[in-house]
């Protein structure tokens, strides 16, 4: 008996136990996984190096050079950044972009939230309304719509034709420095459908139970809105805010088309991205454009970081 038991115990060193087999199998599978990861993630990794991360670092290098593509880049230290400090078009383009972001995004989100709230109250035909309101979001970034906008707000455009019915003579809105930006802001507000759909999905997540309980406790509709809907919706509001702001910072097509690529009249629609395009691909001043790209990255990163820090004070993530 003892001998037998000893033999078994001794045998356990050579004969793999169930636990051992599992471990080997897991190890084998681990190796399989690593191999497969190389295969499945390979293209992504190459893309990361050559298309995404590499270019970011490369543009940091180019930002310290004078480079026109024709001759090799020439190291000039901080000169591009010094030029940026004195470049008035750059400053005005920053101003235009910030105004655009700070005006159009809140307007767009307010409209999106208002309509989501109306639609969420069991309106019949919800899918139809949702589709109609969502459609502009799909079309809004296209050249065709930007051209339509250019017509609508031109001297002989649709808006002025409608105004003339009321005896008002309008001017060319897109060639007036005070109004041109507003037409592009209007275009962004027009695409409120996408955040609206996200708000609607968020409103669906709020359990009806909460509203019933509050109603039983005697809370009126206004109270219920501010005590239940708003706090529980803050994560969605935050999400939409960050997303739409980053999108708005990158707006290009509308301003480019409406102003015919110039950013005019008198630079009133010269978005930052448009100016970057002009420096990089109009003047082929690649060094300066790289420095601008880095500033854009820092600004967007900064805005996002501020949002995330501020979110601690107003976004409500459950108990």
């Amino acid at each position: 008996m003892i001998g037998l038991r000893e033999r078994t115990r001794a045998g356990s060193d050579n004969v793999p136990s169930a636990a051992d087999t599992q471990r080997t199998r897991r190890r084998w599978r681990g190796r399989q996984d690593t191999l497969a990861a190389g295969l499945f993630l390979g293209p992504w990794f190459i893309g990361l190096i050559f298309i995404t991360l590499g270019p970011i670092l490369a543009s940091l290098y180019f930002s310290f050079t004078d480079y026109s593509l024709l001759s090799p880049p020439e190291w000039i230290g901080l000169e591009n950044y010094q030029r940026m400090l004195e470049d008035e078009r750059l400053h005005s383009s920053l101003g235009v972009t910030v105004v655009y972001v700070l005006v159009s995004v809140p307007l767009q989100l307010a409209l999106a939230l208002a309509l989501a709230l109306v639609l969420d109250r069991g309106v019949r035909g919800l899918p139809l309304y949702r589709s109609v309101y969502y459609l502009p979001s799909l079309l809004g970034s296209s050249v065709a719509i930007a051209l339509l906008w250019q017509q609508m707000f031109g001297a002989e455009g649709l808006l002025n034709v409608v105004l003339s019915l009321f005896g008002v003579t309008g001017e060319s809105w897109i060639s007036h420095p005070d109004y041109a930006l507003s037409t592009i802001i209007g275009l962004n507000v027009w695409t409120f459908g996408a955040p609206m759909v996200i708000f609607l999905a968020g409103l669906r997540q709020i359990p009806a139970m909460y509203y019933e309980a509050a109603a039983v406790d005697g809370a009126g509709p206004v109270r219920r809105f501010f005590q239940i809907t708003v706090p529980l919706l803050t994560p969605i509001i935050f999400f939409n805010l960050v997303l739409q702001m980053i999108n708005a910072f990158q707006s290009f097509t509308q301003a480019f088309i409406v102003s015919g690529g110039t950013g005019g009249p008198s630079d009133s629609t010269l978005f930052y991205t448009l100016y970057l395009y002009q420096r990089g691909f109009g003047a082929f001043d690649m060094g300066y454009a790289s420095a601008m790209a880095w500033l854009l990255l820092v600004i967007i990163g900064g805005f996002t970081a501020v949002h995330f820090i501020a979110s601690k004070y107003w976004v409500f993530y459950g108990d």
């Binding site: 990361l48 050559f50 298309i51 995404t52 590499g54 270019p55 970011i56 490369a58 543009s59 180019f62 480079y67 593509l69 980053i246 910072f249 990158q250 290009f252 991205t273 970057l276 990089g280 691909f281 690649m286 454009a289 790289s290 790209a293 880095w294 854009l296 990255l297 967007i300 996002t304």
Partner: peptide, 16 residues
């Protein structure tokens, strides 16, 4: 990288 604006990488991409 989801949030990375294309404008940040377009210049070096163009060079590449």
């Amino acid at each position: 990288t989801i949030m990375l604006p294309v404008h940040v990488v377009i210049v070096p991409q163009y060079i590449l």
